[in-house]
Design a protein around this nucleic acid. Structure first.
Length: 478
RNA sequence: GGCCCGUUGGUCAAGCGGUUAAGACACCGGCCUCUCACGCCGGUAACACCAGUUCGAUUCUGGUACGGGUCACCA
């Protein structure tokens, strides 16, 4: 076990937190915490064209809501420009980097001629005099890393093992842009070193470019960090094709998921298990504190994982069921108040919903039948198990209507007793009677709660009204 | 296209040379129940392919296929 381990999460402020990024943050955080280390947050905002207002707050809020606490930061790269500049100059002095004055036009034509891939190193051979001259003319320039033209650069990834890339595959990448801002390729290395990052945890998309960063460490004579590349998070589209999880696959930002009624703990729990599996246990429910203890790198998978909304829904429904009734009501009743008239027994309805929704956004659909008079298909009245048909239901309803109209008390227990008594007197099965009443009142086959529970919520007047309507429909069509 | 990585049921996954190849989601069936849901019980379903190493390969090696990633003055 390594002591003084330090990891970081270094997102760029895009205005939303992609769920894949959040998972990277989580693993990074967990790796540090599992070994008593530190976790730092750094904002990589060196692309001025993509600045988004309030984006840093989104990152900070997301981490907080997810339960990921950072020990240092947020460091902001745009505030550290001088540092990068200084280190870039050092590289020029030591011959590991050079100024490049090539115009965009020349770069474009290069691309056209040679297809995709690389800079041709034209400015490598500029003499000091030529550079001086260009500088005096105030020509814009970038600083590029000088890659070795032969050989192989290797490193050991904690997940993938040894990775070896031919240096000929490496481009003379830009370290400092013409606007003076550094590129990710450069400043993340400087920062990771300066901030004492021991383990660099990031997505698999960096696996191949990491040798370039290794070369930077080497050029400065610094020790390379441990690299941990994570398998990507994939999404599946309607045709069954998988690709990097993106907006076309549905809600992919943490905020979107919360807005759809997912609980933060459920989301965190689910994504923790997407690409990682605990050792020696089949446990699948974890608090973040438990994860901090249990997490270990050898449980990380090598292959990409498809984000499955169904399973997230299941996790979420489990977390919802774990909520106390009070918590659940507090969250649900305000929503119901907006959707329904307030003279209904919303608390009772909320109770019925507790074990029946998987996300809070389900509420609207599951109570729609209360306010809307939905079209009824006569087949709804046919139920094999309870041996009902539209005719039988018509007869049942005709019998029950006067009984219900005369019911003294209108609550679930009383109504249930009344109908039960009818069953006894008529010799009908309770299941059949309840089926008929329930479908008549709700006008759909799947409902949150049973017949008498629904009548309780609807109240006497509305229940009777709907049963009368059902009766007339059944008389016409049956 | 070059380079790199990956491949156990529809999905997440355990497995780390000998197993009846776990478990979870989804799906199907049953029980419970006044419906649905919950809960409980059960079921269908997988080692991409071909060689090699080995007494023995899901597990090791090579190739093929398929999938993914990457080749920016984006991160």
């Amino acid at each position: 076990m390594q002591t003084n381990i330090k990891t970081r999460f270094a997102p760029s402020p895009t205005g939303y937190m992609h769920i894949g990024n959040l998972r990277t943050a989580l693993y990074s955080y967990l790796l540090a915490k599992s070994q008593g280390g530190k976790f730092v947050l750094r904002i990589e905002d060196t692309d001025r064209s993509r600045l988004v207002e309030g984006a840093v707050e989104v990152i900070v809020d997301t981490l907080k809501t997810a339960g990921i606490e950072y020990d240092e930061g947020p460091y902001v790269q745009s505030e550290r420009l001088d540092i990068y500049r200084e280190y870039a100059e050092k590289l020029i002095e030591s011959g590991h980097a050079y100024r490049c004055f090539c115009t965009q036009e020349r770069l474009d034509s290069l691309k056209d001629e040679k297809g995709i891939g690389g800079y041709d190193g034209f400015c490598r051979s500029l003499t000091p005099e030529q550079v001086r001259e260009n500088l005096d003319k105030k020509l814009p320039y970038v600083i590029r890393q000088k890659m070795p033209d032969k050989g192989v650069t290797k490193y050991t990834d904690m997940i993938y093992g040894e990775v070896a890339i031919d240096n000929s595959e490496l481009n003379d990448q830009i370290l400092i842009k013409a606007d003076g801002y550094p590129t990710y390729n450069f400043c993340h290395v400087i920062d990771d070193y300066l901030m004492g990052i021991t383990h660099v945890i990031r997505g698999n998309e960096y696996l191949v470019s990491t040798p370039k960063y290794c070369l930077l460490y080497d050029a400065f004579g610094w020790d390379r960090p441990v690299y941990v590349h994570l398998p990507l998070l994939m999404g599946k589209d309607g045709d069954g094709n998988v690709s990097k999880l993106s907006k076309r696959h549905g809600a992919v930002s943490f905020q979107d998921l919360l807005a759809e009624g997912y609980l933060p703990e459920a989301v965190v729990n689910y994504i923790a298990l997407l690409g990682w599996c605990p050792k020696d246990t089949n446990q699948e429910f974890f608090t973040i504190k438990e994860l901090e203890k249990l997490f270990s790198m050898d449980g990380i998978s090598k292959s990409p994982a498809v984000f499955d909304y169904e399973k997230l829904r299941w996790f979420n429904s489990e977390y919802i069921k774990k909520m106390s009734d009070e918590e659940f009501d507090n969250r649900t009743i305000p929503v119901l108040e907006k959707l329904l008239s307030s003279d209904m027994n919303l608390k009772r309805l909320s109770g019925l919903l507790h074990t029946r929704i998987s996300a809070f956004s389900d509420i609207e659909d599951s109570v729609k039948f209360i306010t809307e008079l939905q079209p009824v298909d006569m087949s709804f009245y046919t139920n094999k198990k309870n041996k009902t048909t539209p005719e039988i239901c018509r007869d049942i309803l005709a019998d029950c209507l006067p009984i219900l109209e005369q019911a003294e008390k209108w609550d679930n227990d009383s109504l249930f007793a009344v109908l039960k008594e009818y069953c006894a007197n008529s010799g009908r099965k309770a299941g059949a009677v309840m089926w008929a009443v329930r479908v008549a009142v709700a006008r759909q086959t799947v409902t949150p709660g049973g017949a008498t529970e629904l009548m309780d919520i609807f109240g006497r007047e509305k229940s009777i009204e709907r049963i009368k309507l059902a009766l007339s429909e059944l008389s016409e069509n049956a």
